[in-house]
Write a protein that binds this DNA or RNA. Sequence first.
DNA 1: TGATATATTGAATATATATTCAATATATCA
DNA 2: TGATATATTGAATATATATTCAATATATCA
Lengths: 206, 206
Amino acid sequence: MARSKEQNDRMRESRKEKIRNAALLQFVKQGLFATRIQDIAVQAGIAQGLLYHYYSSKDEIFVDLINEALDKTIAASYSVRDMETGPGEKIRFALERLVDTIENSQTFLDTCRLITQAINSTAIPIDAQDLIQEKRNIPYQVIEAIMAAGQKEGTIVGGDPKMLSILFWTSINGLAIYYSTNNNRDVELDYRVIASMFLIERESEE
Amino acid sequence: MARSKEQNDRMRESRKEKIRNAALLQFVKQGLFATRIQDIAVQAGIAQGLLYHYYSSKDEIFVDLINEALDKTIAASYSVRDMETGPGEKIRFALERLVDTIENSQTFLDTCRLITQAINSTAIPIDAQDLIQEKRNIPYQVIEAIMAAGQKEGTIVGGDPKMLSILFWTSINGLAIYYSTNNNRDVELDYRVIASMFLIERESEE
DNA sequence: TGATATATTGAATATATATTCAATATATCA
DNA sequence: TGATATATTGAATATATATTCAATATATCA
């Protein structure tokens, strides 16, 4: 054998990651269909032929990326769920952190855009559709449960908790899309405006 | 001459509209690049060759549709601006109507999706990019002015009015995208939750 | 150093689809 | 009815791009 199996696997995986990063950049910029294999290869700094050494098709890369993106949003929602505070504070803190992430993390914006793109087209690979079907609703369910708990606790406003969860995520998502397609960073966001949709005002906290 | 010029123009325009409607359906479902000329022709019930009798390319149809979509959102924002009420009430009423439209108008959802798609890709025709550049911000500016006026009036919460306008439109847009890609209509939306981001609560209205 | 496995390249090929075009149909008016 | 303009079709062509593949390079170990 020319090289140890493990070392080889590690190198292979890091090469695949380089390709995924290049593909993500192009998919987010142009969309799955407008992105050519050539674009990804150039972005990754390799010949197009080599790409097929690691991925058997453009679709396969896309599916890998969608899976990663969905897992990231699920992980983010679990980290909120598992906080050691009451539900009202969880919502407040989650919004604070999400808004900050929108303002500062290009990766987060790319993730939101990729998922939005995928959700907005029926022409994406069937495997990607299945993953979305399977995973898309988890963050909605997590927030819905927190909203319901907060209503019991008396810190979250009334109304269908499912609706509140939808408004939570669609606000964040709408904002992320706006931000990633507007280079003007002249407006500073205040998460408390969004939070006021969900949190019951306490009269004079002190 | 075989047919009067005017009659001909009218027929031509109605044919073009049929093609645009077919194209909108396909673009919204699949996206510009995944939609084939053949898909549009089949949807419109004509041969592919005939399409070129009315439009010189797929891109040209797309540009026409984007232009229409942008004009619709601008017109909607102007109708809010020109209401005969105070700014706070304008915001309240606009949200009430927009949420209702999301729940009941497929055309509105298609319009939102098409614009979101266009904004999310740099691979769209240059003419479409120019139109977006030129028209996209108008609804934001209109709502920003109303927010500022409402703050003077004392009915709108504090904070950068530009930020409030961004939250206004990104909430609506996020919601529209969610709704158009989720067939579950089991959740009824309450516009007052969104309105509570912007309107100052009046203690006991009666 | 030689053997072997894997990496890499870019030209060749296959394929999908946009666009053109010649042939034919249809509508209107003189 | 015949002349003329426009509508319509679908096969032919052009073109873009995904995928394959033969040739070559490189890394590792015996």
